[in-house]
Simulated scan of single mutants.
Amino acid sequence: MRLNIVSALLISTLFFSCNKDDSGHDGNSAEIDYKQEMRKFVIGISRYAKNQNSGFIIVPQNGIELVTQNGEILGEPHHDYLNAIDGNGQEDLFYGYNNDDEATPVQQTNYLKSFLNVSKNNGNTILVTDYTGTVSKVNDSYQKNEAEGYISFAANERGLNKIPEYPNPLHHENDMAVTALSQVKNFLYLIDPSDFGEKADFINAVTATNYDLLIMDLFFTQDEMFTEDEINQLKIKANGGKRLVLCYMSIGEAEDYRYYWQQSWTNNKPVWLDTENPEWTGNFKVKYWNSDWQQIIYGNDTSYLKKILNAGFDGVYLDIIDAFEYYEQ
């Protein structure tokens, strides 16, 4: 859930520490292959999760260049990465790249599609989030994505805090029991529950819909997680069909409102914690290749991913995959 990286980079103050982290890399050293480090991170997350639940779904959002070996359109597919994931999420493909409710430039759309199709041709599902609320543009978004073989959601709020009233009925609404990502016909991206007064309000609103897939947060408030029983409630559509529920997790930035954040970091930052994202208060760039940061995310019983697995989610939706772009500058 981010503005496009070009806008963010133009107003960011880029600076890096020259101290070596415990992976042996310099913070701004040319020795780091930032794309490959992100691939390795995602692959590690996938292996850990699928070792505990073989059907657990892994979907990285944005950073689509990782699907080829060299990050170029004509590059060879990176099969280890492609085989570790089950889909790719992409924001702003047809609407929202420069401004919400505004068509994405055709050149940018074609650039992204070239990489998305590498993943699709490998058998992965493509989930597109366009940011538009005008009825004609919503219709256009769904039509264009369907023509490409992508599953899409037209979000009427960049904050992903609303269930859109349109279209009604949903695009390709159905009463199927959806048990695999490849069966999904539509999805709801709703990661900010702050507009819902109580957990029950959020659950009731979602269970009153027939979306095949829900992408949501593990937490209802800063300190209150959704329980496994509540996640199981959310897996049932209004018409009785089954839906998948994926959990949003940022791995390319640290968020100061998360359970793992320590107040001491304000004045004594760990080596992996970098500058604040000026577009999103409380979100900080991280040297994602650092093992200390990765251990917060996955690999042990106190990790973020373990909490998601314990809560009964069907998979994880990984954000800030495109953090490599920031470090490559």
Rank of each mutant, 00 (worst) to 15 (best):
M1C: 07
R2S: 12
N4Y: 04
V6A: 14
A8R: 06
T13M: 07
F15D: 11
C18L: 05
C18R: 09
S23P: 05
D26M: 11
G27Y: 06
N28E: 07
S29F: 08
D33E: 09
R39A: 14
K40F: 13
I43H: 09
R47W: 04
R47Y: 03
Y48I: 14
Y48F: 13
L66A: 06
N70W: 08
L74K: 13
E76M: 10
H78F: 08
N83D: 15
G87F: 09
E91H: 04
E91G: 14
L93I: 01
Y95K: 01
N99L: 13
E102C: 08
E102K: 15
F115S: 05
N122M: 11
G123F: 15
V128C: 01
T129W: 09
Y131V: 01
G133K: 12
V135D: 08
V138E: 00
Y142R: 00
E146P: 02
A147F: 02
S152Q: 04
S152K: 01
A154K: 00
N156C: 05
E157V: 03
R158A: 15
K162E: 13
P169H: 05
L170D: 06
L170V: 01
H171Y: 10
H171L: 06
D175A: 15
V178Y: 15
K185Q: 15
F196Y: 14
F196H: 00
K199N: 00
A200I: 12
A200L: 06
D201E: 11
I203N: 02
A205R: 00
V206Y: 04
I215W: 07
M216Y: 05
D217T: 10
F219Y: 13
T221P: 07
T221Y: 05
F226W: 07
E230Y: 02
I231H: 02
K235A: 11
A238H: 15
N239Q: 13
G241Y: 02
L246I: 09
S250K: 02
E255M: 13
Y259I: 09
Y260T: 00
W265G: 03
T275C: 07
T275F: 03
E276F: 11
W280D: 06
N283H: 08
F284P: 00
Y288H: 01
G299M: 08
G299I: 08
S303F: 12
Y304H: 06
L305C: 06
L309S: 02
Y317K: 00
